[in-house]
Design a protein around this nucleic acid. Structure first.
Length: 469
RNA sequence: CGGGCUGUAGCGCAGCUUGGUAGCGCGCUGCGUUCGGGACGCAGAGGUCCCGGGUUCAAAUCCCGGCAGCCCGACCA
């Protein structure tokens, strides 16, 4: 039914489709400097919803928000060998400021482990100060050679959590709590986007970490997108930044730290996880606009009815917007579909005469006619039904796109349009090189039952491999 | 950062080969008729032809150098 010509179909050119959606749903534009991004109000509203949902969960784990500076002394980076090596290609460095050459170059943060470490060392005196659980919402800069809106930009927005603990076990347990109770819970219950939870092989680990956990989601084209990551940093940063505490026994002990982040990349993930040829599809629990009430024509009576419908839904806790009937009906309907609003309620004189309105679901285009009185009870149910359907659909898609294979060669074949799952023993070492040569990478390691291993050294692990964004 | 393609009105493009001062579709503005799946008529507005240099009487067009975008690769949230 919907017009076919607005967006490039996914099957014809997926990257083009993605760009069309970003542009036509008015989510973002390229900034004037290569790799930078202007996030437009609708895109930002989606990010704000993500922020809110994650922030609530982060706070439940006991972490508190703080803010650290954008500018970091270059010397901080040099203190952790792997860290500096891993990040130096992506650093933007300020060497000139205030009209003169700087004595010490200043790095624009690509991540904040180093500054945070410096201050943790200052703030932590005794075991009574632990755990120290911090989070910040900030922008970071990583100079990107091949930028794509939301997925990879030189400047992006994220949250980065940084924590310090007494023991490896405490740090490890907290990191897992973040990974499951914040990230995975958000992914599954809000974003309706299941991801493969596992650990990164050594080759893909965060520079300076002893273990990196990930959530790898399957996009509509079968490629992988890392949606979030949680790192156990062991004592590497504690050692580099002298983060010591005095134990109950009076001994000076090194802390164990963690860090974890999720970024505006999630917006790109949202687009590619649920979007279809008619545009974005936003899960109701995430949607900044859950319901749009569309006036079929620009008519005083119709517009008034729309306002009443919106007000009653708003009172019922639904995020709702009214589209008064300016411009052609078909055009407006198409625009809301591109924006992925979960439910459209069409209000027109024909239905109105009988006290009815039409409700249309974005996920399956299903239309139903409802009495005005039923809306307040029916709309929340429909929103939940859409949420459930999107999650079920995403799980089915993930499973369809994942093949169990027995060799690296078959894995490369499977990675043409999805994920391959195979024994890690078949891949580790040589196999990883072979995969990488074909632009396929090991996305994560799991136990046979899909649960997260404690380390790469566990025997009998399986791995998921795919092409990735 | 390598390889390929591209930059002309907000968006999509033609014009460039063969230099002569810019056009089409959509969108936008106004008025009117419309409005239940991208409406139509009439009247309009809008361009440093990516930027800088060069050749020339004359450059969107030819030459050189930048910058930006897209696709593929290496790197990454």
């Amino acid at each position: 039914m919907a017009s076919q010509s607005v967006l490039t179909p996914q099957s014809q050119d997926f990257p083009r489709w993605y760009q069309d959606v970003v542009a036509k749903a008015e989510m973002a534009d390229n900034g004037p400097v290569r790799g930078t991004m202007v996030i437009r109000p609708y895109g930002y509203a989606i990010w704000e919803r993500m922020q809110y949902e994650m922030d609530v969960r982060i706070k439940k784990t006991g972490a508190k928000n703080a803010y650290f500076p954008l500018f970091i002394p270059e010397s901080y980076f040099a203190r952790e060998a792997e860290h500096v090596e891993g990040f130096s290609p992506e650093l933007a460095v300020v060497t000139y400021a205030g009209g003169e050459e700087l004595a010490e170059p200043i790095v624009v943060r690509p991540t904040s482990e180093t500054v945070v470490g410096e201050f943790m060392a200052k703030w932590i005196q005794s075991y009574r100060d632990l755990p120290l659980l911090l989070n910040q919402w900030a922008n970071v800069v990583r100079w990107e050679l091949r930028p794509r809106l939301f997925l990879r930009s030189s400047e992006f927005l994220w949250q980065e959590g940084h924590t310090a603990h007494e023991s490896l076990d405490d740090a490890s347990a907290y990191a897992r709590r973040i990974h499951y109770e914040v990230y995975n819970d958000f992914m599954v219950n809000v974003l309706a986007c299941p991801s493969y939870i596992g650990i990164k092989p050594a080759s893909e680990r965060f520079p300076g970490a002893i273990n990196s956990m990930t959530g790898e989601a399957v996009m509509r084209d079968g490629k992988a997108l890392q949606m979030m990551t949680t790192h156990e940093l062991g004592q590497n940063f504690a050692r580099a930044f002298d983060i010591y505490y005095q134990s109950e026994a009076g001994q000076a002990e090194l802390c164990f730290t963690t860090s974890w982040g999720a970024s505006t990349r999630l917006v790109g993930g949202l687009i590619m996880a649920h979007g279809d040829d008619n545009g974005l599809v936003v899960p109701p629990r995430l949607a900044p606009i859950q319901v749009v009430v569309v006036a079929v024509r620009d008519d005083a009576e119709v517009n008034e009815a729309c306002e009443r419908v919106a007000a009653s839904l708003g009172d019922a806790g639904v995020r709702v917007e009214v589209d008064r009937g300016r411009g052609s009906f078909g055009r407006r309907v198409t625009d809301w579909e591109i924006k992925g609003v979960p439910i459209r309620i069409e209000v027109g004189p024909r239905d109105l005469a009988q006290g009815l309105v039409t409700l249309v679901r974005r996920d399956n285009a299903e239309k139903t006619t409802l009495g005005l009185g039923a809306l307040v009870s029916e709309v929340p149910l429909a929103l939940e039904s859409i949420q459930t359907n999107l999650l079920a659909r995403a799980i089915a898609h993930r499973d369809e796109r994942t093949r169990d294979v027995d060799s690296v060669a078959d894995a490369i074949d499977a990675a043409k349009d999805g994920f391959a799952r195979l024994a890690w023993d078949l891949v580790a070492g040589e196999g990883e090189t072979t995969l990488n040569a074909q632009a396929v990478s090991v996305r994560c390691l799991q136990r046979q039952d899909g649960s997260m291993p404690s380390s790469e050294d566990e025997g009998g692990l399986i791995c998921l491999v795919a092409k990735s964004y």
